[in-house]
Each structure stands twice: as structure tokens, then as C-alpha cells.
Design a protein around this nucleic acid. Structure first.
Length: 405
DNA sequence: CATCCTTTGAAGAGT
DNA sequence: ACTCTTCAAAGGATG
């Protein structure tokens, strides 16, 4: 069941969030920073090489550090780097996680004044309805158009130990030790009804002054109206009117269309009038089908790893001078595992925001809507695809020469 | 030109 | 309840 009613229980929370890949070696910390790119990449390289023999990534606990400093020649990367990346970086620099009150769960929620979308919290008290959260209001760095979501700190209180601190489990696929995620995360996002209209997109696309978008925007932008913001009944009933700006053209309140919307001009035929939420279609088959074709393609919200990839890809590409996404993704996958819990937490958090916002924007949307939209790719289990062809071996080979170690 | 590759995670579908 | 499948991004490779 699609999340929608955050109200109920487990809204968008990923029950699987916060995976702990690095058991005990966690604290090896990054502050020491600059575990240089070479080190990092070297680790990656070696792990890639070793992967086939042992997935248990024990070595992962070693490298913990991700980011080498940006190289001067990364201007192109800098250029394309979106606001999201910047925000994340600032979080780190700003010590967002530096002093976790809650050791096991240093988690997010601690607003950072420098973070454009974690700060500025300020939902009016009235907007905060039942949902707890002492929201910190930050006067500065508050973009007028990006007020904040309220989060609950409750769950991060020392009184509620994160479940992921429990014994780890092995990922069946990778053999990498994992720890269950706190399922109680979900309720953290009690968006008060009135707050919905104020939801800032957690990511860059929403920040006009940056001119960067989290998602690639089709040429011509998202001019097409999309269902959710066209104010369907469910929204208007849930949101207080004054909080819900009307955007006749389907733009976000900032005037920036949500990136999840793919303009029909791009993916599907253009449409002229309103769209109902997918679940509202109950017309004759033929008609429904046509309507379906007309509907703009609403993409799935990005998950934590996708967000991470989006941010880091350019970096990896720059470092590796490698462009092949498959290879890049492998590297990123390894890096992802090498991230500390705190670092991953940031992305899980962003992903959750993303999902939440997505569900607010497209109340009727379901992942099912996109099923079959792509060509079925049937790669039967990849297990045997290792040695030959484009297996890990070739990947390693392809990136091997890039790491001069 | 369309699809594959490759990754993780979320969610729907199927058993 | 559990497992399997699909789709999110991305860009070179491939048929």
C-alpha cells in the first residue's frame, strides 16, 4: 500500500533504513579526513578485486572515509553539482553529525543552521499539530520559499535505542553484515496537515537561486501540469487552504516543478488538461488506457543510495576519468557500504524526505503506476555473470588502471 | 534507437 | 510472511 497517509502508521519510513555495514570498526573516523582519494580508491579497487571471493567486506570497516578533497580540475563537477550535494557537504563541514547526543543514533534531525533544507524549520506552532517535535526555528538562511518540514526528535532521544544497534545480520546477497533499520523511523515525519504546503523539497531542485536541480529536467522544463499539485480532492481536504498554494500549472510552490515529473512531452504525449491521480481512474478500459498514456510520468522518488549516487557520481567520474555508469555504480556501491552510519543516515533521511514530499505531491501515486513502463529487462540472476563478459572482473579491469596503486 | 549494464533501496506482485 | 520483480539515475556499450 502506497504510503499516502502518513497519518497512519508507518508512513514512508523505510523499515530497512540505516544499514550498518561496518560493524565495530565504525568509529574509525573520517575527521581525520582525507583519507585521500588514493586510499579510498585503492580500497575500492581491492575490494572490487576481492569481491568475488569474499563479499563480507570486512575491509570496508577500514576505509570509512569517503571524500577526498575536490580537485581543482573538478570545476565541471562543481558546476554540475547540485544544491543537494552542497547541502550535504555543508552538513558535514558544519559538524552536523559531529556531536551526536545519541551515540548509536547520531542521526539527522539535528538542524544545521547552514543547511538550507534542514534548517529554517519553522513551521508555525499551529502547523505542528500533534506531532511532537520541538522544531528549531532558524532565522537565518531561511529561504522564503523553503520553509521546513518538521521532524521529530523524539525517536532520537536516548530513551529509544535504535534497533539497528542490534546484532547485525548478513546481507543475503552480499554477505555484508547489516543491521536492521529502525522501523520506528517512519513516524518521524508527521507532517502536520498545514505544513504540507510548506514542504520544501529536501533537495536542490527546489532551490531556485541555485539554479541546479536535483533531477535532470527535460528541455523546456516541466511545463505540464501534474495531478497532485493540481489540487486534487485528497490534497485539499488534507491541507489547510491557506497553506496550499495553488499552482495552476503544476509547479511546485516555488514555481519549480517537481523533478519526479517527467514532462509528457518527453516521455509521453502531451496532455492538455488535468490529470487525476492514477488511482482515480475508473473509466472504460480503452479510455482509461488513453488517459493513462496522457498522464505525465511520475517517477519514483529516489532512495538513499540513488541520492548518494547522484551526488557522488560526478566525483567518481572525475577521479576515475571513467564514464561507464555500470562501473561507476559498482564503485559507488562499494563506497556506499564504506560509509559510516552517520553518513548513510543523511541519505536515508533525505530519501525519506523525498518520499514524503513525493507522497504529498502525488497522493494517489503508486509505484505500481510505473510498472511496465520500462522495457522489461530480464536479466536472470546475475550470479553467473561474473567471470565473463561484463562481470566484476572486467569492471575491475576497466577501473584498475585508473587507480595508480 | 532501444536496451543492457550496474548499484541499493522502496514498494508492488506473487507465492 | 516471505521472496521476487520492477524502477528509480546514468552514460557508455551493444544489438
Amino acid at each position: 500500500m502506497p504510503q499516502l497517509n502518513g497519518g497512519g502508521g508507518d508512513d514512508l519510513g523505510a523499515n530497512d533504513e540505516m544499514i550498518s555495514f561496518k560493524d565495530e570498526g565504525e568509529q574509525e573516523e573520517k575527521i581525520s579526513e582525507n583519507v585521500s582519494a588514493e586510499r579510498d580508491l585503492d580500497d575500492l579497487k581491492s575490494s572490487l578485486v576481492n569481491e568475488s571471493e569474499n563479499n563480507s567486506s570486512s575491509s570496508d570497516s577500514e576505509q570509512a572515509e569517503r571524500r577526498p578533497q575536490p580537485r581543482p580540475d573538478l570545476d565541471s563537477y562543481e558546476k554540475t553539482r547540485d544544491y543537494f550535494s552542497e547541502a550535504l557537504r555543508r552538513q558535514q563541514d558544519g559538524g552536523f553529525f559531529k556531536s551526536p547526543h545519541y551515540p548509536g543514533y547520531p542521526f539527522l534531525m539535528i538542524p544545521d543552521l547552514t543547511n538550507p533544507y534542514l534548517s529554517n524549520g519553522a513551521l508555525s506552532p499551529s502547523a505542528r499539530t500533534s506531532n511532537k517535535v520541538p522544531v528549531v526555528q532558524h532565522a537565518h538562511h531561511v529561504h522564503p520559499l523553503t520553509p521546513l518540514i518538521t521532524y521529530s526528535n523524539e525517536h532520537f532521544s536516548p530513551g529509544t535505542p535504535p534497533s539497528h544497534l542490534s546484532p547485525e545480520i548478513l546481507d543475503p546477497k552480499t554477505g555484508i553484515p547489516r543491521t536492521p533499520h529502525p522501523s520506528e523511523l517512519s513516524p518521524y515525519y508527521p507532517l502536520s496537515p498545514g505544513a504540507v504546503g510548506q514542504i520544501p523539497h529536501p533537495l536542490g531542485w527546489l532551490v531556485p537561486q541555485q539554479g541546479q536541480h536535483m533531477y535532470s529536467i527535460p528541455p523546456g522544463g516541466f511545463r505540464h501540469p501534474y495531478p497532485a499539485l493540481a489540487m486534487n480532492a485528497s490534497m485539499s481536504s488534507r491541507f489547510s487552504p491557506h497553506m496550499v498554494p495553488h499552482h495552476p500549472h503544476g509547479l511546485h510552490q516555488t514555481g519549480i516543478p517537481h523533478p519526479a515529473i517527467v514532462s509528457p512531452a518527453v516521455k509521453q504525449e502531451p496532455n492538455s488538461h488535468d490529470n487525476m491521480s492514477p488511482s482515480m481512474h475508473s473509466k472504460s478500459p480503452g479510455l482509461a488506457k488513453k488517459e493513462e498514456d496522457k498522464k505525465p510520468h511520475i517517477k519514483k522518488p529516489l532512495n538513499a543510495f540513488m541520492l548518494y549516487m547522484k551526488e557522488m557520481r560526478a566525483k567518481v567520474v572525475a577521479e576515475c576519468t571513467l564514464k561507464e555508469s555500470a562501473a561507476i555504480n559498482q564503485i559507488l556501491g562499494r563506497r556506499w557500504h564504506s560509509l559510516s552510519r552517520e553518513e548513510q543516515a543523511k541519505y536515508y533521511e533525505l530519501a525519506r524526505k523525498e518520499r514524503q514530499l513525493h507522497s504529498q505531491l502525488y497522493p494517489g501515486w503508486s509505484a505500481r503506476d510505473n510498472y511496465g513502463k520500462r522495457k522489461k529487462r530480464k536479466r536472470d540472476n546475475k550470479p553467473d555473470s561474473t567471470p565473463e563478459g561484463k562481470g566484476l572482473g572486467s569492471i575491475c579491469h576497466s577501473i584498475g588502471h585508473l587507480f595508480s596503486i
